[in-house]
Design a binder for these strands. Structure first.
Lengths: 340, 340
DNA sequence: ACTGAAAATACAAACGTTTTTTGTTTCATT
DNA sequence: AATGAAACAAAAAACGTTTGTATTTTCAGT
């Protein structure tokens, strides 16, 4: 059906080598160029990337393994990543593993069979076991958003400065006189959970506050988890005067819980959230929150991967840390001034 | 680096054909099976899908071209699609064209170069020009969510019954005595826009109401568009008593506009929206709306594509139409009963 | 142990490129 | 007219599989 180089060769009378050279950016004589282009149009020739991949031993495909496709934080990262990679002629195969470690491992194996040139992973399995095969195969692995301890030094990564983000948020609260600060974290064990907890503890220490176990809650990074966590916090005898919620879904859940309990923000309770996303920004427009630069994360990841692919000099792994921004709304009040 | 069949052949003393047969589900002698499995483990052999693709002339890759990756309606379809396809050993390359017809065409070409076995497209360009190359190449094309008129009979499709969905919603309103019904549509020219308008007009006719041009607004399927459209509707001398908003983002925008204008739902205005999505359901929990079965759309699309791929009997194109559901909340009131 | 059929295997060609080698043509420069 | 470089042709090997044909092995039935 589809035309091949051989057909082109017959049509133009040129040799395979010349044609191959033409398609790979080499120079050919003007009249040959014209002949080739005419033949391409006539025979509707398109280069067969599969054959090319086999010969060059690179597929020009990047595998991306993520915990969840239906998550705007993740898709906006992927979107900006894919954009850049495709512009460099790399295709992206995305595998959604539904936050399931077994599926994640299968996805990595699936991608290795397909001989992807590189792997980008937002890790579900904190042990990193799923990535061993990829590292053995010698293909570059790039972690996004979550570091994997056991792979320190073996992979590159693009992350945000979680500790500082958390520190910054909580410091804001202590600066304004808050001493009872509730923290809503993701699932225990995850990299970002640990980091954001550390930042919180650092900020408390800085302010000379000793942490209260009851104020630290785990909400699984889901809206419902955030909702439950806040409900629990509100039931405490000594209620917190402020909340820091460490991802977007949980922030949404937290706000709903507060709304349902008729708690005013910031009069009754101060709140700092996480990840302003377009649509939701309009619903709770005045929230103070930590913003992650999703577009930059995607861009850095794509560029770093392209670097890794072009420099074969093996093991120069880089960890790119991006900074977050504290976007000030009106959901935090100072305890030092009385309410009007 | 990576082991090949030849290495396995050397290691086990078996021929290539035998090994190939083994990997493709054929039977080999017990002792050979054991030898092969040992060698696979020892040499860490993984089949090279690229070589396999070249030989078999199928890439086992499906290309998916969508207008926007950061859209939960779309990603939830893709998610369920990818799940099924991967289980059948098909990889999915997703190309986000940002609702740009030029990018869409480039994406299709990109995928054709990679010799995808099939193409799934939620079309941005209503003319369908971008798909010609794919049809010429003879690969199956499957449209999702949006039909392309010019391709009638040349592609399969999975859609919802837009006319009926719209009819059902608007009939609900007329049944309750509403006669001034505002309609917020997507971008002019899009398939779904036209269909949903038709359903609206049919319902009006059924109720003996002649349509008012002022009540029909285009909101581009964006939240902001919905917001603006509703604001314009509210400025009319004869305000509508009810609204039907035809996608999720616009429904959100509409609700915000109403909130900002202190319009009570349903006391002051009845509203029927579109596409309940998890997170938002909690924010406006009592909305009456049309629900699309995203998971089913994805599932049907995947299965239909698998069908198309296995049956080479060319031109048996099928259009699968799924039904929507009117999910009743409390955002619609009857004009036949006085307010309490 | 002998036969015959079925199962298992070996061999080689093919898929569509890239790349190397060897040798030829083209064409501007001296 | 001679020189040299760039462009070209032709042929062949290679990438790692699959597959058709031909050959060998296996083993039940005698």
């Amino acid at each position: 059906m589809a035309a091949t180089l051989k057909d082109l060769s017959r049509e133009t009378g040129l040799g395979l080598a010349t044609l191959s050279k033409y398609f790979n950016g080499g120079t050919v004589r003007e009249k040959n160029r014209i002949a080739i282009e005419a033949a391409v149009k006539k025979l509707r020739y398109v280069p067969n990337e599969v054959a090319r991949s086999l010969k060059t031993q690179q597929s020009r495909v990047i595998g991306v393994v993520i915990p969840e496709l239906s998550n705007t934080f993740i898709t906006s990262i992927i979107s900006s990543m894919e954009d850049i990679l495709r512009r460099h002629d790399y295709a992206v195969i995305v595998c959604d593993c539904r936050s399931d470690a077994k599926r994640e491992k299968e996805a990595v194996e699936f991608l290795l069979h397909r001989r992807v040139d590189g792997l980008i992973n937002m890790a579900t399995d904190p042990s990193g076991a799923h990535l061993k095969a990829a590292l053995n195969a010698g293909i570059p692995v790039l972690l996004v958003d979550r570091l994997v301890e056991s792979l320190r030094g073996k992979t590159s990564a693009v992350i945000i400065d979680n500790i500082h983000a958390s520190l910054q948020a909580v410091r804001k609260l202590t600066d304004l006189g808050h001493r009872r600060i509730g923290l809503v974290l993701g699932s225990p064990g995850l990299y970002t959970t640990n980091q954001r907890l550390t930042g919180y503890l650092n900020a408390l220490q800085e302010a000379g506050i000793s942490p209260t176990e009851d104020y630290i809650r785990y909400g699984d990074y889901t809206m419902d988890g955030g909702y439950q966590a806040v409900q629990a916090l509100l039931k405490l005898k000594k209620r917190p005067s402020a909340l820091f919620v460490t991802n977007f879904e949980m922030t949404l859940g937290a706000m709903l819980a507060l709304q349902h309990q008729n708690i005013r923000v910031p009069e009754d309770l101060s709140v700092i959230g996480f990840d302003k996303l377009e649509l939701f920004g309009e619903i709770f427009p005045d929230l103070t929150l930590i913003r992650q630069p999703q577009l930059s994360i995607g861009r850095e990841a794509a560029n770093l991967m392209l670097d890794l692919l072009s420099s074969h000099d093996a093991v120069s792994h880089r960890i790119v840390t991006l900074t977050t921004e504290l976007s000030e709304g009106h959901s935090v009040r100072s305890l030092k001034e009385p309410l009007p």
